[in-house]
Amino acid sequence: VIAMPSVRKYAREKGVDIRLVQGTGKNGRVLKEDIDAFLAGGA
């Protein structure tokens, strides 16, 4: 999974398994917005 360390930390704090999140950034990078969208109700 491609993600910046700050995004990985954010996901950990929110209790999200970053491997389950679909990245929308360049080359499938997971963004902070992707974590929020995942929490809001889905992949």
Rank of each mutant, 00 (worst) to 15 (best):
Gly25Lys: 03
Val16Leu: 06
Val1Phe: 06
Ile35Asp: 00
Val16Glu: 00
Val1Thr: 10
Asp36Glu: 07
Gly25Ile: 02
Gly23Trp: 02
Ile35Asn: 00
Leu20Gln: 12
Leu39Ala: 07
Phe38Arg: 04
Glu13Ser: 13
Ala43Thr: 14
Ala37Gln: 11
Val7Ser: 03
Gly28Val: 02
Ser6Leu: 09
Lys9Arg: 13
Lys32Phe: 10
Arg12Phe: 15
Gly23Thr: 03
Gly42Trp: 11
Met4Ala: 15
Gly25Gln: 02
Tyr10Asp: 02
Lys26Val: 12
Ala43Gly: 14
Gln22Phe: 11
Ala3Lys: 04
Ala11Arg: 00
Ala11Gly: 04
Ile35Pro: 00
Ile2Phe: 05
Ile2Arg: 05
Ala40Gly: 11
Pro5Gly: 11
Glu33Lys: 15
Ser6His: 12
Lys26Leu: 12
Glu33Gly: 13
Gly23Lys: 03
Ser6Lys: 10
Ala43Leu: 14
Val7Glu: 06
Val16Gly: 00
Leu20Met: 13
Ile35Thr: 00
Gly28Phe: 06
Asp17Trp: 04
Met4Thr: 15
Gly41Arg: 05
Val7Cys: 04
Arg19His: 10
Arg8Trp: 15
Gly15Ala: 07
Val30His: 02
Ile18Phe: 04
Phe38Gln: 05
Leu31Thr: 13
Val30Ser: 01
Gln22Met: 12
Arg8Met: 15
Ala40Glu: 13
Ala11Asn: 00
Val21Lys: 00
Leu20Asn: 11
Gly15Lys: 09
Tyr10His: 04
Gly41Ala: 14
Ala40Phe: 11
Glu33His: 12
Val1Ile: 13
Met4Val: 12
Met4Ser: 15
Leu31His: 08
Thr24Ile: 02
Ala3His: 07
Pro5Ala: 15
Ser6Trp: 13
Leu20Gly: 07
Tyr10Val: 02
Gln22Gly: 08
Lys32Glu: 06
Asn27Val: 05
Ser6Arg: 08
Val16Cys: 06
Val30Leu: 05
Val7Gly: 02
Ile18His: 03
Arg29Pro: 02
Leu31Met: 11
Ile35Trp: 00
Val16Phe: 02
Lys32Asp: 04
Gln22Glu: 11
Arg19Trp: 10
Gly15Thr: 04
Ile2Asn: 12
Asp36Phe: 04
Phe38Ser: 04
Gly25Pro: 01
Ala40Trp: 10
Lys9Thr: 08
Lys32Arg: 12
Arg12Asn: 14
Ala43Lys: 14
Ala43Cys: 07
Ala40Thr: 11
Thr24Arg: 06
Val21Trp: 02
Leu31Ser: 10
Ala3Asn: 06
Arg12Asp: 13
Gly25Tyr: 02
Arg8Tyr: 15
Lys26Thr: 11
Gly15Val: 04
Gly42Leu: 14
Lys26Ile: 11
Ala3Arg: 04
Tyr10Ser: 02
Ala43His: 14
Met4His: 15
Ile35Leu: 04
Gly41Thr: 14
Lys32His: 09
Ala43Gln: 14
Phe38Asn: 03
Ser6Ile: 08
Gly41Glu: 13
Gly28Gln: 06
Ile35Val: 11
Ser6Thr: 10
Lys9Gln: 13
Phe38Tyr: 15
Arg12Ala: 15
Lys26Gln: 11
Pro5Glu: 15
Ser6Glu: 13
Lys14Gln: 11
Met4Trp: 15
Arg29Trp: 10
Val21Pro: 03
Val30Phe: 01
Asp34Arg: 00
Lys32Asn: 06
Leu20Arg: 12
Asp36Ser: 04
Val1His: 08
Ala43Asp: 13
Lys26Phe: 11
Arg12Tyr: 15
Lys9Asn: 11
Gly28Ile: 02
Lys26Ser: 10
Lys9Phe: 08
Gly42Pro: 14
Ile2Leu: 10
Leu20Asp: 09
Tyr10Glu: 02
Arg8Pro: 03
Asp34Trp: 00
Gly28Ala: 06
Asp34Gln: 01
Thr24Pro: 01
Ile2Ala: 08
Met4Gly: 15
Val21Arg: 00
Tyr10Gln: 02
Ile2Asp: 10
Lys9Ile: 10
Gln22Thr: 14
Glu33Thr: 13
Glu33Gln: 13
Pro5Val: 11
Leu39Asp: 05
Lys26Pro: 14
Gly41Tyr: 12
Arg12Glu: 15
Ala40Asp: 11
Val21Cys: 06
Asp34His: 02
Gly23Ser: 04
Lys14Val: 10
Gln22Tyr: 11
Arg8Phe: 15
Tyr10Leu: 04
Ile18Asp: 01
Ala37Leu: 11
Leu20Glu: 10
Asn27Gly: 14
Ile35Glu: 00
Pro5Ile: 13
Gly28Glu: 05
Leu31Ile: 09
Ala43Ile: 13
